[in-house]
Design a protein around this nucleic acid. Sequence first.
DNA 1: TGTTAGCACTCCACTCAAACGAGTGCTAAC
DNA 2: GTTAGCACTCGTTTGAGTGGAGTGCTAACA
Lengths: 341, 341
Amino acid sequence: MDLDERKKKILKAIIQTYLETGEPVGSRTISKYTDLNLSSATIRNEMSDLEEMGYILQPHTSAGRIPSDQGYRLYVDELMQEKQQEVAEIKEMMIQKTDRMEQVLKQVVKVLASNTNYATMITGPTYHGNKVKFIQLSKVNEEQILAVIVVEGNLVKNQIIGLDEPINDETILKLNLLLNTQLNGLTIEEINLGMIAKIKEQAGIHSKMVTEVLDAVAKAIAVEEEVPVYTSGANNIFRYPELADSAKASELISAFEEKKLLTEMAKDSEGKENTGIQVYIGSESPVSTMKDCSVVTATYDLGGGMRGTIGIIGPKRMDYENVVDNLKTLKVQLDTIFKKT
Amino acid sequence: MDLDERKKKILKAIIQTYLETGEPVGSRTISKYTDLNLSSATIRNEMSDLEEMGYILQPHTSAGRIPSDQGYRLYVDELMQEKQQEVAEIKEMMIQKTDRMEQVLKQVVKVLASNTNYATMITGPTYHGNKVKFIQLSKVNEEQILAVIVVEGNLVKNQIIGLDEPINDETILKLNLLLNTQLNGLTIEEINLGMIAKIKEQAGIHSKMVTEVLDAVAKAIAVEEEVPVYTSGANNIFRYPELADSAKASELISAFEEKKLLTEMAKDSEGKENTGIQVYIGSESPVSTMKDCSVVTATYDLGGGMRGTIGIIGPKRMDYENVVDNLKTLKVQLDTIFKKT
DNA sequence: TGTTAGCACTCCACTCAAACGAGTGCTAAC
DNA sequence: GTTAGCACTCGTTTGAGTGGAGTGCTAACA
């Protein structure tokens, strides 16, 4: 049996109707509300075929049909047409308060959540593979030194170092020079404790104090940066009865709060190269909690190895067209905004 | 009618039973499971009185009684006895990974959430009223300057400043000196744009460039610090049927996600001076979304004007003793941990 | 005067069966 | 290949009936 044009049309009609209503859809509905001009009986026959082929399924005998994961997959890959949506809104909302990255990201999830009515998450960009641009130690007072490290992409890390005995200005100057010449241009990965030890040796300074300072710097660099994750619209889950019963909702909410979800997803999509937009339907998702949902992720790229991930979590009957479209335009927006800054 | 000892005992029994079961409690239950040795009929009479006085109420005729907000209030203020709970667990869990403030706070909400089974939030400490300790401008490269400001309590802010034309080392040195001597020891509130203008004038430097740098510094200082808020255990809401229906849960989850909640609360409790622990029962809460819940907040104080707030959100039939106790010991823990660091 | 036993009454929660209706599968006719 | 028609299935809704928990009141008791 092959999936001819008519079957595709019917499948598409079934899915679209189901997306709107959330109810299983029957043959009569399709026969009435499409321009196929087929009787419900014919539709029934076709539906029976589609079910056998695995694109739709019946929750129980004598109920309408709902799309299977495989059905959604076909829909996303082939049937869904690109929709050229109005996105001036996003742009406008993003331009307000774009003075700080964090603000922008928070704004983005909010806009997305209210635009799509799904739960949304976004990770801050990670500077995986980025180079050290500048290091500076400065004396705050007699007991404390401030270490500041700037990496490409202008991310700044800092660490306050407490001292047991005073350090003199000259030593600090010397260390600054040494650190900058030795470490400049290296990636965070390339700088390890061994490297630091080598610097210590080269410097020929052996005071316990200095060792202490360098260790602190090494630590500041080595600390695995926790990627910030912003979320919005968690309550949208309750819009969809199929997710809103308390057992499921509880699980979803806690997964959402956990925030590891998105980093998992990001890791998964790393290999696959395409438009940068990934659609996970039900059990396709690498995270098992999400087996009753669909997750759409997009990777945004600010250049120079700075990448982050946006994720939208909704029911399987997600409005894929709208979501994918939103994400696409958002990627462009983020690019232009940050490239300018 | 006055609230005699026996009425108090009965009220206490009603509340405690209700806390456990979540079901309206009847006269027979009280008569059987307390050592008052009164028949259910007598209890009924007393309950009728208590209802008239507003401490308990009936969801409907011929149902048991549940505590009113006023009843809970009396319980929290008078009836509840201090419980000396085992809290070694908290301490132990907090000692893991205490290397960074953020980590500690995240850890704290998690422990609290799993200890109490309620939703919990914590704000990072704010340095309201703290003094500038150290300012440093440094040249990252020809186009960029890094401004770092350290305030008392060792919070570090930074800002990258883009330049249109190069700035020379001498100017930077001069500015550093000037900023440190002029601004050191002032609170963030005392430094305003006017102040900065005065410095510019005093410096006698009038290049457009310098103005730009100083403006950026002013901005970095003036930016209203967004207090970070960490949450945990949002899904605990679903443990309590009275909150778990989807309309209420949706509202609560979104309030929880919003995070403004806790800062509202913190503001509210600012005036009231007591143990630092505030209990808001139902409609007592300044946030109307919380009218079906109780919220317990505690203020932790790291000294030097550094303060933050912890909040626990649960049903009205919250286990107040346990919660208050947990918060109290936590306050102590936080104090010792951070005072050491 | 406070306490208790007894009883009628109320109201919710639960169960069960019947009615309903949406939808299917199959067959026979076009 | 398409369609009309019909029997059948099965989940959902409705409404009546029942049991039980709990109250309020009254009358008797200490």
